[in-house]
């Protein structure tokens, strides 16, 4: 090797030996880099070419979206062996959703959080849910005295309970934060995430004042027989690893006219849901007749999730 003149660098002396050594070191170095990055290659081989080049949800044509939905459905069926359908639910014209919660009758049973967990195909080991129920101390609305990990009969003495989920703000800070429009507000007020577009920077999670957003720190684990087969592209389909997710007011149900899962699970009827544009809706009656309040009103986020006390 040293006999040859591999390539001539314009410096004086010792060119051949040094250059050869350097070339050797460079080869070794490259090999080392390749070895170090090998796990990435394993991961990359699991990626899907079509998904990689997939456009933003709102730029997809009807046909393109149909192809994607078919593919997602097919994959989910293959993976779970259940008759999964991944649909695309569009907002209903003339509907803007709002939610109200009666703090006087909420007993803190966490049935809503549990229903959310099941309905939205949440990761089982972390018992993930879009709803966190705070056990609050009577005498104020002070989250500093709140506790989410209570584990004793409810309602406790001198406690009241405050379930918190996405407030579907009219002025959502998470949407402004996103650098790539992977999260946006739809015409019915629901803030959604395109799981196939999100890059997982988690700026929205930092921006949300209500701890409403969740990140998929790993691929969500749901046993196949527990998978909810009624899925939607923007809501409860099983999320990929490394992207954000959030409460969508169960748009796969509510955009079909049904109640969100958390409302149906509530044993006391503390939850009121409906179309805020319909003057005869229950939610309108609550807003007009109860003294409702929103969380962190001073931030100007204009939540569409209202709380009220009866007594």
């Amino acid at each position: 090797m040293s006999e040859k003149k591999p390539f001539s660098l314009p410096v004086v002396g010792e060119v051949d030996r040094r250059t050869t050594l350097k070339a050797g070191a460079a080869t070794l170095g490259l090999a080392a880099w390749a070895a170090a990055l090998k796990p990435m290659v394993e991961w990359a081989s699991s990626l899907d070419r079509d998904e990689f080049f997939q456009k933003h949800y709102r730029e997809l044509t009807r046909e393109q979206l149909q192809v994607i939905l078919h593919k997602l459905t097919f994959e989910a069926r293959k993976e779970t062996g259940k008759p999964v359908t991944v649909k695309d639910h569009k907002p209903i014209p003339g509907v803007v959703f709002a939610y109200a919660l009666n703090l006087s009758i909420c007993i803190g049973c966490r049935k809503c959080a549990e229903a959310c967990h099941v309905e939205n195909n949440h990761d089982r080991p972390s018992n993930q849910s879009y709803i966190r129920v705070f056990e609050m101390q009577k005498g104020g609305i002070d989250f500093e005295k709140g506790n989410t990990t209570y584990d004793r009969p409810v309602p406790g003495k001198d406690k009241y309970y405050m379930p918190v989920q996405c407030q579907q703000c009219e002025n959502p800070p998470c949407v402004s934060a996103c650098p790539i429009e992977a999260t946006w507000q739809e015409s019915d007020g629901i803030v959604v995430v395109d799981y196939n577009w999100c890059i997982g920077c988690r700026y929205c999670e930092a921006a949300c004042p209500y701890h409403a957003r969740r990140f998929n720190w790993t691929k969500p684990e749901v046993p196949p027989d527990e998978v909810n087969p009624n899925q939607s592209y923007l809501s409860n389909r099983i999320r990929p690893q490394g992207v954000m997710e959030k409460c969508t007011f169960c748009l796969h149900r509510t955009r079909e006219g049904r109640m969100p899962a958390c409302l149906e699970a509530c044993p006391t009827g503390a939850r009121v849901f409906g179309n805020i544009l319909d003057p005869d809706s229950e939610i309108r009656w609550v807003l007009e007749n109860k003294r409702v309040f929103v969380l962190k009103e001073e931030l100007g986020t204009k939540p569409r999730f209202y709380y009220f006390f009866d007594k």
Binding site: C109, R110, N147, T149, R152, P153
Partner: peptide, 30 residues
Amino acid sequence: DCHHPHAPRYPTVMPARGPNDRFQTRGSHE
């Protein structure tokens, strides 16, 4: 359905399982 007519106060129940976040200890605010 929910209120026993003879003792209508809603009964005390055990809550469903709470969040299982990493590094979140039980009763952190107690």
